[in-house]
Structure formats: structure tokens, C-alpha cells
Deep mutational scan, measured.
Amino acid sequence: MADEEKLPPGWEKRMSRSSGRVYYFNHITNASQWERPSGN
């Protein structure tokens, strides 16, 4: 997916099972956040 290609290394887009909202998860640091991480 083009959107995921633009995410910084380690980040992936996921869907919250409880709320149905999109969030972002970093599998390197195990961090998660609602806001899209910047690629800069």
C-alpha cells in the first residue's frame, strides 16, 4: 500500500479492534499512537 511505504522504518498502520479507529504501531520500539508518524 502506498500509504505504508511513506511511514518511517518500523511503523505500520493497524486498526483498533475496540474502537475501529486506525492507529500506528512501531514493531521496533513497541510504541503505538493515533497520529501518523512523520517520515522526516
Rank of each mutant, 00 (worst) to 15 (best):
M1K: 13
M1N: 12
M1W: 05
M1G: 08
M1C: 12
M1T: 12
M1H: 06
M1V: 08
M1Q: 15
M1D: 04
M1Y: 15
M1A: 12
M1S: 13
A2N: 14
A2V: 12
A2M: 15
A2P: 04
D3C: 01
D3M: 10
D3K: 10
D3P: 15
D3Y: 08
D3R: 10
D3Q: 11
D3F: 14
D3V: 13
D3I: 05
D3W: 04
E4N: 07
E4V: 08
E4W: 05
E4M: 10
E4P: 09
E4F: 06
E4L: 09
E5Q: 12
E5R: 08
E5A: 09
E5N: 07
E5L: 09
E5G: 09
E5F: 08
E5Y: 11
K6N: 06
K6A: 14
K6F: 09
K6V: 13
K6G: 09
K6W: 06
K6C: 10
K6I: 10
L7P: 01
L7I: 02
L7R: 01
L7Y: 01
P8R: 01
P8C: 02
P8L: 02
P8W: 01
P8Y: 02
P8V: 01
P8Q: 04
P8M: 07
P9L: 06
P9I: 06
P9A: 11
P9S: 09
P9H: 11
P9C: 05
P9D: 10
P9M: 05
P9Q: 09
G10P: 13
G10M: 02
G10H: 12
G10C: 05
G10Y: 05
G10K: 01
G10A: 06
G10L: 02
W11F: 03
W11D: 03
W11G: 01
W11H: 01
E12G: 04
E12M: 06
E12S: 08
E12T: 13
E12W: 02
E12C: 07
E12A: 08
E12Q: 09
E12K: 02
K13N: 03
K13P: 05
K13L: 09
K13M: 10
K13F: 07
K13W: 04
K13H: 08
R14F: 03
R14G: 01
R14A: 03
R14Q: 03
R14T: 04
R14D: 03
R14K: 10
R14C: 00
R14E: 02
M15E: 14
M15C: 11
M15I: 14
M15H: 02
M15W: 12
M15V: 09
M15T: 14
M15G: 04
M15N: 08
M15P: 02
S16N: 15
S16W: 05
S16D: 14
S16E: 13
S16K: 06
S16I: 08
R17I: 02
R17D: 03
R17W: 05
R17K: 15
R17A: 12
R17C: 11
R17G: 09
R17V: 11
R17P: 15
R17N: 04
R17L: 11
R17H: 15
R17E: 15
R17T: 15
S18E: 14
S18M: 06
S18R: 09
S18P: 13
S18Q: 10
S18I: 01
S18G: 07
S18Y: 04
S18W: 07
S19N: 14
S19I: 10
S19V: 09
S19G: 13
S19E: 13
S19C: 08
G20Y: 03
G20S: 03
G20V: 01
G20I: 02
G20E: 08
G20L: 03
G20D: 07
G20M: 03
G20A: 06
G20N: 08
G20Q: 14
G20K: 13
G20W: 01
R21E: 07
R21K: 10
R21S: 11
R21D: 09
R21L: 09
R21G: 11
R21W: 06
R21Q: 13
R21T: 06
V22W: 11
V22L: 06
V22E: 14
V22A: 15
V22C: 12
V22H: 07
Y23P: 01
Y23D: 05
Y23A: 03
Y23S: 04
Y23M: 08
Y23T: 05
Y23Q: 04
Y23F: 15
Y23H: 02
Y23E: 10
Y23L: 03
Y23R: 02
Y24K: 02
Y24S: 02
Y24D: 15
Y24R: 00
Y24E: 03
Y24W: 07
Y24T: 00
F25R: 06
F25S: 02
F25A: 05
F25V: 08
F25H: 10
F25G: 02
F25P: 02
F25C: 04
F25E: 04
F25W: 06
N26W: 00
N26L: 00
N26S: 06
N26P: 01
N26R: 00
N26G: 00
H27A: 14
H27N: 06
H27Q: 14
H27W: 05
H27K: 12
H27T: 15
H27S: 12
I28E: 14
I28G: 11
I28W: 07
I28K: 15
I28Y: 03
I28N: 06
I28M: 14
I28V: 15
I28A: 15
I28C: 11
I28T: 13
I28L: 12
T29S: 06
T29V: 04
T29L: 12
T29P: 01
T29D: 07
T29W: 03
T29R: 05
T29E: 05
T29G: 02
T29Q: 07
T29M: 03
T29K: 07
T29N: 05
T29C: 05
N30M: 07
N30D: 05
N30F: 02
N30Q: 15
N30K: 15
N30L: 07
N30H: 14
N30V: 01
N30I: 00
N30C: 06
A31T: 15
A31V: 15
A31Q: 08
A31G: 09
S32T: 13
S32I: 04
S32V: 09
S32E: 10
S32Y: 03
S32L: 06
S32K: 12
Q33F: 02
Q33I: 04
Q33D: 02
Q33M: 06
Q33S: 12
Q33H: 04
Q33G: 03
Q33P: 00
Q33A: 08
Q33W: 01
W34T: 14
W34C: 13
W34L: 11
W34G: 08
W34A: 15
W34K: 14
E35T: 13
E35M: 07
E35Q: 09
E35K: 14
E35Y: 05
E35F: 03
E35L: 08
E35S: 13
R36F: 10
R36W: 05
R36L: 11
R36G: 03
R36N: 04
P37V: 01
P37E: 01
P37Q: 00
P37R: 00
P37M: 00
P37H: 00
P37F: 00
P37A: 01
P37W: 00
P37C: 00
P37T: 00
S38C: 14
S38A: 14
S38Y: 04
S38V: 12
S38E: 13
S38M: 13
S38F: 08
S38I: 05
S38W: 11
S38Q: 12
S38N: 15
G39E: 15
G39C: 11
G39T: 15
G39L: 10
G39W: 09
G39R: 09
G39A: 15
G39I: 10
G39K: 05
N40K: 15
N40Q: 12
N40P: 10
N40T: 14
N40E: 15
N40V: 15
N40L: 13
N40A: 15
N40S: 13
N40D: 14
N40I: 11
